[in-house]
Design a protein around this nucleic acid. Structure first.
Lengths: 177, 177
DNA sequence: GTGTTTATGTAGTTGTCGCTACATAATATG
DNA sequence: CATATTATGTAGCGACAACTACATAAACAC
């Protein structure tokens, strides 16, 4: 996970992955089937933890405004310091990758994340759910890219706070359900 | 430029570049020196055109609010339809690339772009110039990433308009110098 | 036309990629 | 202890990467 997160799917070879795991390539393939197979398991583990921003933010309850703000603030906390890497593994892991399987894996996870946010937003603000979701998603993409480029937590937090205020102001979001 | 823009620096080989130019690899190296040499020329050409968002926006005059809004709106126009590719070549071209030279090229161009924006902002709003610049840059990063993932102009425009309003509202920006 | 320079194509260099055939070592079963 | 099964390491597969030595072809001055 650390290697994929830091350098992306294509830039990490099976030889390096095997050596990091303390095994040899044949054992690697016996265990994971393929490089994409390990990547899939890595992604599943990744979204089980605190990196699943929306799930964590939603679990604490509140209205659309509060949940989305909590999601963005968590991104500001998590993105700059993930195992020496930075940004979201699902967003950055297969950028410019040549492997269609790996791309499809992350694409479907991004789609699932977006759908979860939109369904939650639509339950409270059905009229402008797509707009609100797009706004939050593009903001997250920007924060992930900025973190990948070396942005620190303070800067991302400022951005998250400002975006959250804009979300409330522009779309009339409330903090209570 | 089209190939680099669509798939990123690493994913495009010299054989493909040569074939697209109608020449063979030896002629390619005689003309450009290396793959990175062509990429550098491609980048220089890229920032000469409408892709240099801030330069274009600044040239039309106005205050910080008007210029930054024009920059974001131009991004919404340009990012989704660049030669079949999408997003900003300087931002997306070397994502997860393994070539240090190519990465350094785009990194220095991003740095130069950021400095240009910050100097302009600082001339009008010195107190919060860094904050304002960061906010605009992260928004641009998000729009580029979204466009790279298939977002259309309408969605990006909505985002740009909302971000521009937030910029004015949060930082008290004016449209006249 | 002759000789010289420049450009091009053929073919191949080295290196790394994901992946695997095969033989050996370790483990479990009778 | 002998046998059957699983796991591991050695070594190398074919494909492709950036890049180039070399011979041939084109363009030029005279």
């Amino acid at each position: 996970m650390k290697l994929f997160h830091a350098r992306g799917y294509d830039a990490v070879g099976v030889a390096e992955l095997s050596s990091e795991l303390g095994i040899k390539p044949p054992s690697f393939y016996a265990a994971f089937g393929s490089k994409a197979g390990l990547f899939e398991r890595v992604l599943q583990r990744y979204v089980m933890g605190e990196a699943n921003l929306f799930a964590h933010a939603q679990a604490e309850g509140g209205g659309v405004g509060a949940v989305l703000e909590r999601m963005l603030l968590q991104a500001a906390r998590v993105y700059p310091r993930c195992n020496g890497a930075a940004g979201c593994l699902v967003i950055e892991g297969t950028r410019n990758s040549t492997d269609p399987d790996a791309r499809a894996l992350t694409a479907s996870m991004r789609q699932a994340g977006r759908t979860a946010i939109r369904d939650f937003v639509a339950a409270h603000s059905p009229a402008r759910a797509e707009e609100i979701t797009d706004f939050a998603m593009v903001s997250l993409l920007g924060m992930s890219a900025a973190a990948h480029g070396g942005a620190d937590e303070a800067m991302l937090q400022t951005f998250a706070v400002t975006v959250s205020r804009a979300l409330r102001h522009e779309f009339g979001l409330t903090d209570t359900p």
